[in-house]
Design a protein around this nucleic acid. Sequence first.
RNA 1: GUCCCCUUCGUCUAGCGGUCUAGGACAUCGGCCUCUCACGCCGAAAACACGGGUUCGAGUCCCGUAGGGGACGCCA
Length: 466
Amino acid sequence: MTVVTRFAPSPTGFLHIGGARTALFNWLYARHCGGKFLLRIEDTDRKRSTDDAVAAIFAGLEWLGLDWDEEPVFQFSRADVHSGAANRLLAEGKAYHCYCTQEELEEMRAKAKAEGRPMRYDGRWRDRDPSDAPEGVPPVVRLKAPQDGETVIDDLVQGEVRFANEQLDDMILLRANGTPTYMLSVVVDDHDMGVSHIVRGDDHLTNAARQTLLYEALGWDVPAFAHIPLIHGPDGAKLSKRHGALGVEAYRDMGYLPEAMRNYLLRLGWGHGDEEVISTEQAIEWFDLDAVGRSPARIDFAKLENLNGIYIRNSSDEQLFGHVVPVIENALGRSLGDIDRNRLSTLIPSLKERAKTTLELFENARFLFMYRPLELDEKATKLLTDEARSVINTLLPVLADLSEWTPESTEAAIRQFADDQSLKLGKVAQPLRAALCGRTTSPGIFDVLDALGRDESLARLGDIAN
RNA sequence: GUCCCCUUCGUCUAGCGGUCUAGGACAUCGGCCUCUCACGCCGAAAACACGGGUUCGAGUCCCGUAGGGGACGCCA
């Protein structure tokens, strides 16, 4: 059997992190099995669906590197097919018209609540003669679902889950205005798209039971289900905006790399022995639904950051440079000229050892793009005492006399200088750092000198010495 | 409230009856390295929710309890 999975978001907002993980698991499973990963946009709620959201979902998936097979299906465009299925059930006597008013349903709900029961439609039109139909009330179409027995979901993640059919009432297939409901659309679409494995959040577990009934009524094979636990916020509660229910593009803007994000999401609820840093190739090879945990996982930004740092360090200099230039240009509000680019690319190897996000990398590189005379931060100002300035003063001609300007040559000269002056290297390096970077932390000082170049370095030192 | 699911260090997890005095990772705290900050390395503290069974033996199986989550729409 060819495995076909799908990701079916409703375009009512950005692609949030929970959806991203669901998409990732679907994608991984399809790739692992050599099957297909399809995309369906569930835009049947016309009021809440927007084109912007559709675009955001596409962009989010692309950013994460989750490519889908075939053209995306837009659910709303298939409304006729969906209602056709409902009409077929009607003709076969497996569905019926219900003329209940909203008020009647409200009453049922209130009564159920008062009696401590869940709201269940009482089936009052189930076997009633259609000739009883009230004038001018447009009916909904309901499924004539079995009233006893049980429906069993053999879930790849949750195991065998049983629901008593009496708890599953006659769900609405077609609304009074004739449009199909979610429950109907999903089943018809998944069937028509040939979906073999439905991987989705476990908030859909009860829906799986209802949908199973629908599959059976329609005479279709029931696909395999895999209901994965939801992601929770750091506090264990539902994901809130404050706690990470952001669009994936927000994570991009916070300086995370898509590969790191993917790795992190993968490890949330799934593990492979002691493996932590897992390449996409390995993930595809190792991923399987039966290893997905059943308990919800909390998002942990510290771990995400740590992983991101690992991916930054493992990036090639060229790759990282490409990632970081737009981040910097965006933060700086100007584009980088050749000089800026050269300085940045020289310092990248050193910069990437000390940043957990590309945003942090920018902060650490910021001094490269500042204009003279440098604005010194508080600590740098404090560090540049008269004594420190005189060290720079004495060192300046030594550096100016260097015939060659490389990390090796400046290091040799400065170490020699410190030796001659009976100073510890730190006593020379720290003032240099403050003068060159305007702050007391930076990449290795010889790399800084190298990146800035001879002229700029000497000029910045001169600004301080005088 | 009803139904369903879940419960190993603070967090993510390994563990699929004996090899568990419970392993790894992040975070935390020490130390080393060192021109600062990082990286790296070494080390410490830190968990089987509780109560009953089953078994020669339970983190691992069963049943309760407690706690957490999800579902109960003419939303998806």
